[in-house]
Amino acid sequence: MGRSRVRILLAGEPRAEVDSHARDLLTQGFEARRVESLSAGSAGKQDIVVVAGKYQPSVHAPARIADLVGPLKSRAILFLSDMDPQSFSVFEQAGFSFINVTTDMSVKSLVGLIAQVDPHAVYQASKTAALRTSVSNGIADAVADLFGRLRANPVAPPLEESARQRRAMDELIGKSPMSVWMDLIQNYHDGTAQHCALVSGYTLAFARALGAGELQTGRLFDAAFFHDVGKAMTPLEVLDKPGALDPDEWEIMKRHVVHGYDILSRDPHTSGEIARVARDHHEYLDGSGYPRGLRAGDIDDITRIITICDIFAALTEKRAYKPPKPTEEAYSILLSMAGTKLDPDLVRVFEKVVAESDGGQRPVKSAA
């Protein structure tokens, strides 16, 4: 019988710094989370406790930390910045064996300490990270292949393609926190593949937050996965331009919604709702969107959902010409659009997806 997974429990202040360490470990394949306290029964015998943050003599007294980590003292790591050499000696004399003795506060340094505590935990994490990377590359490669085929022959793709992608994304998101999944997809080199994968993944998470059933989730995913197929007809020099588009280029870019509708309308399996979402996902409630300037009553719920996911993905994705916006900042932009351009009730529910995408750690502002 194999060993159960080792959890990395992080405690300390400032909270943002500890959260950052937790997210870094998640990306490396560890099961990691910040904890407010280590109450009886909250930690297993195989868990590793990391006391992180900025060293404060009044807070990080050896006796106090010993009380905090309890029976896990032999599996406790002190990962504290700004600790002086004399304090190292005090902790060593108090029986703490794993202390960061360098000024390097990177995840590499923390993983090195974890390896000293439990080499098998690092082995488990490396296998998890490799599997995640393999699955995420498979997802993005499949999307890139789809667009390559569409550019050569703009024929509506089989609906089975979205079913395969949904299974792959369910597997990846099911085994990884949203924040980890997002980091994996963001590192993919093809911008269109990256964007479609992000929108599809956010849509899966949004369907879950909305309490959608299997059939409704499938409809939402199909619409999300095919929403940008029209970009296959957009010149690559426009799609990949490393800067702002000029007015003529912007007009070319906007045509992708019409191209998508035309492509998807050629097959009865995608000609209805899926084609409509491809055409209308840039429409806004106040009539300021394109291509038809639809208003609230003319925009159905499934399109409203995909539009929110599309905007959030565009804001949070990494591109050669821009860094990703933090999830809180991206959600603040959605909030500013709620009620005028976006459905405020849906934006409110989307808060759950934002929290998951940020590792489930930071609170976000709710839509009014």
Results as ranks from 00 to 15, higher is better:
286 D>K: 02
133 T>H: 14
185 I>A: 05
18 V>N: 09
351 E>G: 11
136 S>Y: 12
147 F>M: 01
67 D>F: 11
165 Q>A: 14
106 S>A: 04
34 R>F: 05
335 L>E: 07
16 A>C: 00
167 R>I: 13
72 L>S: 05
172 L>W: 02
121 A>F: 06
38 L>F: 15
72 L>W: 08
244 A>G: 05
337 M>P: 06
305 I>S: 10
33 R>V: 03
27 T>W: 12
16 A>M: 04
3 R>K: 02
340 T>W: 08
356 E>P: 02
236 L>G: 13
161 E>L: 12
95 G>L: 00
350 F>L: 01
34 R>V: 15
132 R>H: 13
80 L>H: 05
91 F>E: 01
251 E>V: 06
274 I>M: 04
180 V>Q: 15
147 F>K: 00
147 F>A: 00
4 S>P: 14
335 L>C: 13
359 G>C: 05
47 D>F: 10
169 M>A: 04
23 R>F: 11
333 I>S: 02
88 F>R: 03
53 G>V: 08
218 G>Y: 07
311 I>A: 09
361 Q>P: 05
299 I>W: 09
192 T>V: 07
32 A>L: 08
69 V>T: 11
343 D>W: 09
99 I>R: 08
113 L>G: 05
233 M>T: 10
76 A>C: 13
14 P>N: 08
102 T>V: 09
193 A>V: 00
311 I>F: 11
139 I>C: 07
202 Y>M: 07
172 L>T: 01
93 Q>V: 13
322 K>G: 02
60 H>E: 05
292 R>W: 11
28 Q>A: 15
239 L>K: 06
217 T>A: 02
277 V>W: 08
190 D>P: 02
158 P>G: 00
253 M>R: 06
223 A>C: 15
357 S>G: 14
64 R>P: 03
291 P>S: 12
203 T>S: 15
352 K>E: 13
40 A>G: 08
132 R>A: 13
237 E>D: 15
198 L>V: 02
232 A>E: 05
105 M>Y: 14
66 A>M: 03
8 I>Y: 10
282 H>Q: 12
62 P>M: 06
10 L>Q: 09
247 P>H: 07
264 L>F: 04
197 A>E: 01
219 R>K: 11
306 I>H: 11
12 G>K: 13
73 K>N: 00
105 M>I: 12
247 P>R: 09
330 A>R: 00
206 F>E: 14
191 G>V: 09
355 A>R: 15
132 R>L: 00
291 P>G: 11
212 A>M: 09
50 V>C: 03
355 A>L: 04
261 Y>L: 03
94 A>N: 08
297 G>V: 03
75 R>A: 03
352 K>Y: 08
354 V>D: 02
44 G>Q: 11
229 V>R: 05
43 A>P: 05
298 D>K: 14
20 S>E: 09
215 L>G: 03
257 V>L: 07
363 P>K: 10
332 S>R: 15
25 L>V: 06
69 V>R: 10
254 K>A: 14
267 D>E: 07
229 V>W: 01
64 R>M: 11
7 R>E: 00
148 G>V: 00
3 R>H: 06
100 N>W: 04
52 A>W: 13
275 A>S: 12
320 A>Y: 10
5 R>P: 01
262 D>F: 07
